[in-house]
């Protein structure tokens, strides 16, 4: 039986032209995610009914959810960043959810993927801040109300705190997804282990646990996508409105 960590194995599906570059299962599921998201939104909005059906309500709900998230956390100026925030949210959300399908691959459980997303967000937000405020942006690192003699201590701390953002953003998403999927697999192996010893009776308990865990994983999938995007909004707010 496969070990609990084998589900995270990256396997090349189509070899690329150069050694080390290949179309892997991770890339395959990213592609599937993009296709599913596109179908979800484009097909959902294709009818444009006054009274939305189930499908249309779902895509409208996601749209309005992101819309109000930006309005509350960034304000009016955040509207032009709607496409970015929306894309981030649905990409992570659908990646998490599709990863729960049996036999699929969760690309958000790899730190290289989440770190790439987080570093992109970090660089983008920083560039937005510098573009809007110029060099004044760096006054962000000077804490208000601190006595001047503490500045040599406070400013490096603020800078490190700022630089740790992408890392904590990435680790939060990756750790949650990886821990959840490992836990599911471990409990699944209990089903076989206990069931084999007790003629199937002992397998009931871990199966019950797995049902509960699967529900919990769906919650985590939503929650982590939400946390990632809401933090992106907060960072964007920081960059736009220095305080």
């Amino acid at each position: 039986m496969a070990g609990p960590l084998e589900q995270f194995q990256i396997t090349p599906i189509v070899d690329g032209p150069v050694d080390g570059i290949a179309f892997t299962n991770s890339a395959l599921w990213m592609t599937i995610t993009v296709i599913v998201v596109t179908i979800f939104t484009v097909m959902g909005m294709s009818k444009r009914e006054m009274v939305p059906g189930r499908w249309q309500s779902m895509s409208e709900a996601v749209y309005e959810f992101i819309g109000s998230m930006i309005r509350e956390n960034v304000g009016d100026e955040g509207r032009k960043f709607f496409p970015l925030i929306f894309t981030l949210f649905v990409f992570i959300l659908f990646g998490n959810l599709l990863g729960l399908l049996p036999g699929s691959f969760t690309f958000t459980s790899h730190i290289i993927v989440t770190l790439a997303l987080a570093v992109f967000v970090f660089l983008f937000v920083t560039l937005v801040g510098i573009a809007k405020h110029g060099l004044h942006f760096f006054s962000f690192f000077v804490p208000h109300g601190a006595p001047t003699w503490l500045y040599p201590l406070m400013i490096p701390i603020e800078i490190i705190s700022y630089l740790s953002r992408p890392l904590s953003l990435a680790i939060r998403l990756f750790a949650n997804m990886m821990a959840g999927h490992t836990m599911l697999k471990v409990f699944a192996s209990f089903v076989f282990g206990l069931g084999a010893v007790t003629a199937g009776v002992g397998g009931i308990l871990p199966i019950t646990m797995m049902v509960a865990l699967t529900g919990f994983e769906i919650l985590v999938a939503f929650l982590q996508a939400y946390v990632f995007t809401v933090l992106t909004c907060l960072y964007l707010n920081d960059a736009l409105h220095l305080h």
């Binding site: 304000g75 962000f140 740790s164 953002r165 920081d238 409105h241 305080h243």
Partner: peptide
């Protein structure tokens, strides 16, 4: 790391 303002307070 969102500075010294309370999270969720409005801009």
């Amino acid at each position: 790391g969102v500075g010294w303002r309370r999270a969720g307070t409005k801009p």
